[in-house]
Design a protein around this nucleic acid. Structure first.
Lengths: 213, 213
DNA sequence: ACGCATTTGTGAAATAGTTCTCTGGTTTTT
DNA sequence: AAAAACCAGAGAACTATTTCACAAATGCGT
């Protein structure tokens, strides 16, 4: 297979920046650019050029001295590194306002993810149409995951149900959970979790809202 | 004023964890606990106890040897540090699926924020009811911000409009922007920005979805 | 009253991450 | 054709962050 050349073990924090590089590069491409440099990319992202070069160097030499990076090539490489050079099927748990908004969002498709199922616990939601999807009962959740080999889930249920739903997801084979519930969940080492809690971001910012300028 | 005792300048990364501590503490309180320890809190959050003690020590000694932390007291202190011991008025820009989901979400109120206005650029949305709010025209945005001294905004517009809307927000007095658009925006030093892009989180996780376990 | 188990806060040590600086190669300008 | 401007990659230096380890304080059980 020899899928990916690692010059050493890249720190997690580096992995977390790669999607940002990918996003910025895609935009630069859309704007008509064919090549870019660590300096230009850094300017777009508010990151030092040295950091970008160092980050990329963990995965191989993608650039050319004097020229910079061929955007198309670098995008392909980063997609390969992040394994989004394929399509991941995603199941969304919770068809409330948030789950529905996720199901409607058009921004997943061209970045490696297809929202393929939406499940909910409440009887009155079952069968309802949300965008292209119809809401499935949560009792079918594990079957859907197992039969389709789903590995990625988004969790948009109330905090009090997040842990038990996560347990069921993992039991059925889910290995990556994007958790919108404002609570830390416990998962085994072989499962990844990321969190989205807008209030955490807001509270981080209000800390700095002291000075009068 | 002498509002906050700082033993030294706390790193930004520490500030980013305080909302997580606050969230976990609030939950512990709800579950009927009155005191906790750095060890217990760390277990809930998947963080070492030493880190929690070190983080808190930047703002003063909130605990008691042998006993731990009085949750109510620590919550009050953290709210004070983060300045969420008051209510921040928030304006949401963009009344699409995402903006609407934000406007409906009940989780802001008890954590320091009140979603008070929802504005949108498209004529057909103006006047529509979204939860308790009605959609205002984006032409009123700066007036709303100025007249009410709004400092915090959430940005839920398409990527191509994010920068220009941000510029207008900042011009009107906004000092903290939570940006849901998948693009990095440029802001002056005295403005804080945080980003929420679910795809970035998903792509970070798929990197690790290599091994078969 | 005393010993033992707990627990904080903290300086020191250990890790981790970022920036600097230079080498070698490329492109553009004159 | 030479000079000047660019640029990636990488080791070294530097800075930041986390963990360790321990003194001092508290509460509990006997």
């Amino acid at each position: 297979m020899a899928s990916l050349k690692l010059n050493d073990i890249p720190p997690d924090i580096v992995i977390g920046r790669l999607p940002l590089y990918l996003r910025a590069l895609t935009r630069l491409k859309q704007e008509g650019n064919d090549v870019t440099s660590s300096h230009e990319l850094g300017r777009h992202l508010g990151i030092s050029s040295a950091q970008i070069r160092k980050d990329l160097s963990h995965f191989g030499g993608f650039g050319k001295q004097g020229t910079g990076y061929q955007i198309e090539y670098l995008v392909a490489k980063l997609e390969q590194v992040l394994q989004v050079d394929r399509e991941w099927l995603v199941i969304v748990v919770g068809a409330g306002n948030l789950g529905s908004a996720i199901a409607h969002y058009r921004g997943f498709a061209d970045r490696g993810f297809r929202i393929a199922w939406l499940v909910d616990a409440s009887a009155e939601k079952i069968g309802q149409k949300v965008g292209d999807l119809s809401v499935h009962p949560i009792s079918d959740m594990q079957t859907i995951i197992r039969q389709n080999g789903v590995k990625v889930a988004m969790l948009a249920v109330p905090a009090e149900h997040a842990q038990s739903v996560a347990d069921q997801l993992i039991d059925a084979g889910i290995r990556a959970i994007l958790n919108y519930a404002p609570i830390t969940i416990k998962v085994p080492d072989n499962v990844k979790v990321q969190y989205i809690d807008p209030v955490v971001h807001l509270q981080t910012m209000t800390y700095f809202l002291r000075s009068e300028d």
